[in-house]
């Protein structure tokens, strides 16, 4: 399957570069880690991080979260996390009117919270996304669009910038963190990494060790949706969620 357009396009690029040698070693050099030693040191540091350093990361996270208007809640356990979510649901109104509904990822950490029961007391139905090849995507879409709160987890959280990062796991649609007016993300304290260098080192390590590449989509989220397009005035809730609540479970 050779696409003649692609061939002539790449030929033009190569000739613009002065037709450099393109043998195996040139190809692997193009993609090689420029600083393998630094990457290895980083991975070691992360794996051996002592508890006091972990605690310091949480302080750093809360310092980064504040100016971004992220509502950071630190809780001791799952029960407290559920209470925190129930409070958020009880205290806010659906932006576009109608009934209060929520949507949540099918994800080990979120399923353990049993939100369907917890929010039933408030009369708020929770749509839980389910992975299945035969799932009705139209239904998922409508349910997510009808929800005013979307509950997700993330794989990592970068302390330096308060960024949530997640490769899309199966059954966890990206729209749950995007379309509802309020996004609630629940993570465990161990998922917090120091900075972007660490995050990318982890991603790389997993790609190498597990032979697992990135999936079709990966998303980083730093704060609620915002814009400054009218006279450079900051406004939250341009298109995505107006509020972002980050719940960190210790222990």
């Amino acid at each position: 399957m050779t696409d003649p357009r692609r061939t002539s396009f790449l030929k033009r690029v190569r000739s613009a570069l002065g037709n450099p040698l393109r043998d195996e070693s040139a190809i692997s050099a193009a993609f090689a880690d420029p600083r393998p030693a630094a990457t290895a040191a980083l991975a070691k540091r992360m794996r051996e991080r002592p508890p006091e350093e972990r605690a310091a990361l949480l302080v750093r996270l809360s310092e980064a979260a504040e100016p971004l208007n992220i509502q950071l809640v630190q809780v001791p356990d799952e029960t407290a996390a559920v209470e925190a979510i129930a409070r958020i649901v009880a205290n806010s109104l659906p932006e576009w009117g109608g009934e209060k509904r929520a949507a949540a990822w099918d994800h080990p950490l979120i399923s353990a919270l049993n939100l369907q029961d917890a929010l039933a007391d408030l009369g708020v139905p929770v749509f839980v996304t389910r992975p299945a090849p035969d799932v009705d995507r139209g239904r998922v879409r409508r349910a997510v669009a009808d929800a005013f709160v979307g509950v997700t987890s993330a794989e990592w959280c970068v302390a330096a910038t308060a960024t949530l990062a997640a490769r899309n796991p199966p059954g966890a649609p990206r729209s749950v963190s995007l379309v509802p007016s309020i996004h609630v993300a629940v993570i465990r304290a161990e998922q917090v990494v120091a900075d972007f260098q660490e995050l990318y080192a982890l991603l790389n390590a997993e790609m190498d060790e597990e032979g697992r590449g990135l999936t079709d989509a990966m998303t980083f989220i730093t704060g609620p949706s915002k814009t400054a397009d009218i006279e450079a005035t900051l406004v939250h809730g341009a298109h995505g969620p107006r509020e972002l609540h980050l719940i960190v479970i210790h222990g």
Partner: peptide
């Protein structure tokens, strides 16, 4: 924008996979 990180960064590598529920 003098920010530390953009609000959203999305990596997209193709159409939604067989077990993706949206995209």
């Amino acid at each position: 924008a003098a920010q530390q990180m953009a609000g959203y960064v999305s990596y997209i590598g193709g159409p939604a996979g067989p077990d993706s529920l949206d995209g």
